[in-house]
């Protein structure tokens, strides 16, 4: 039943295909996706399983979803990197009915980091909300770990009344030299509440107790950002009323800026300033935290803002503790 013509044709197609593939320029693309937060450490483990899958399913059950809740993709896109920098990917969404359109949206600006193959980017997202008219989430000059063909968490924002989102990037590249992600770490910061006797005793906690205490914190704000040793980082989130935007953007703004330094192999130091919301009237909180990769560190906070959620007996809670962790980027 062999057909000589067909077999010759298929051979011809095959060789033509091989030629095209060889001639095609090496793919160098950046894929990104935003995913709603919750069970963050679990999400990171789930995303490790998605290495080699640059385009995630757009909707439905994105991942294994152990909690039973599907994890949905928010903004999702691909940026070709074989063009002139800086590159920008932007989407504007019309507002809810009765409001001016074209305000909510997401912008990702991509730059080269120095002469090497590294990338840095700026993120600016404006989202509608239920508790507030808008939520604004930004981060500047965020370095992307160099590890190829795997998903990297690069930034995440979340507050007490807003579930927030996390931004993930994937460098799909064949030609970029495989290099280890030197000096790039993911910094996780959580500000919230723990009972006063716990805050007083927490410097004597075992690492396991510290890890569990962090999980038991009533969170007020959580931020994550990819940062490079000795380079300043900046991440902020804001909430407010749209009518007041522009005039009072900084009132509901919370900004974290600082620099991570490395003392020796597994010993780091984080110096950062945290601007609580309330504008310039609110004094900045300064932290100087010794860090070891993979471990949570707790620091007391004085004069933190009041939490919206009260205690079991209706008592007022004030953000009195901050937790910090760095995780070395996956190579």
């Amino acid at each position: 039943m062999r057909c000589p013509f067909l077999s010759r044709t298929s051979r011809w197609i095959g060789s033509a295909l091989a030629l095209t593939l060889a001639a095609a320029p090496a793919r160098d693309r950046l894929h990104f996706v935003t995913i709603s937060r919750g069970y963050d450490d679990l999400l990171r483990e789930e995303m490790k399983r998605m290495a080699g899958t640059p385009v995630l399913p757009r909707s439905g059950k994105l991942l294994t979803g152990i909690t039973g809740f599907p994890r949905n993709a928010g903004y999702q896109g691909t940026i070709r990197l074989d063009r002139d920098f800086p590159l920008e990917w932007s989407v504007q969404r019309s507002g809810t009915p009765g409001r001016t359109a074209g305000d909510f949206g997401f912008t990702l600006g991509v730059m080269r980091a120095g002469d090497g193959p590294g990338l840095r980017f700026d993120v600016d997202a404006l989202e509608s909300g239920t508790e507030h008219d808008f939520y604004r989430m930004t981060a500047e000059s965020v370095p992307l770990p160099l590890g190829r063909n795997t998903w990297h968490p690069v930034a995440a924002w979340g507050s007490e009344y807003n579930q927030g989102m996390s931004l993930w990037c994937y460098r799909e590249a064949t030609a970029v030299a495989a290099s280890t992600a030197t000096g790039i770490h993911l910094l996780d910061v959580q500000v919230g509440f723990l009972p006063e006797p716990v805050v007083a005793a927490m410097n004597t906690f075992t690492p396991e107790h510290t890890r569990l205490a962090r999980g038991a914190m009533a969170p007020w704000q959580t931020l994550s950002v990819s940062c490079q040793v000795d380079r300043p980082f900046s991440i902020s989130s804001a909430a407010g009323e749209r009518a007041m935007r522009g005039r009072s953007d900084d009132r509901g703004l919370c900004r974290l800026t600082g620099t991570l330094t490395q003392n020796y192999e597994t010993s780091f130091n984080l110096k950062c300033q945290w601007q609580p919301p309330g504008g310039k009237k609110q004094p900045q909180v300064r932290f100087d935290v010794p860090l070891q990769p993979g471990r949570w560190h707790l620091q007391p906070v004085e004069g933190g803002p009041r939490l919206r959620a009260t205690g079991p007996k209706g008592e007022v809670r004030v953000a009195n503790v901050a937790a910090f962790r760095i995780t070395a980027a996956e190579p």
Binding site: L194, P195, P197, V198, A201, T204, T206, H209, L212, A213, A216, G311, P312
Partner: peptide
């Protein structure tokens, strides 16, 4: 691991990390 010998009848029985 931090609790002292007999857990007391009254007073701060244990350190409750999550306040529950």
């Amino acid at each position: 691991k931090r609790a002292a010998a007999p857990v007391a009848d009254h007073g701060p029985v244990l350190l409750s990390t999550d306040g529950l």
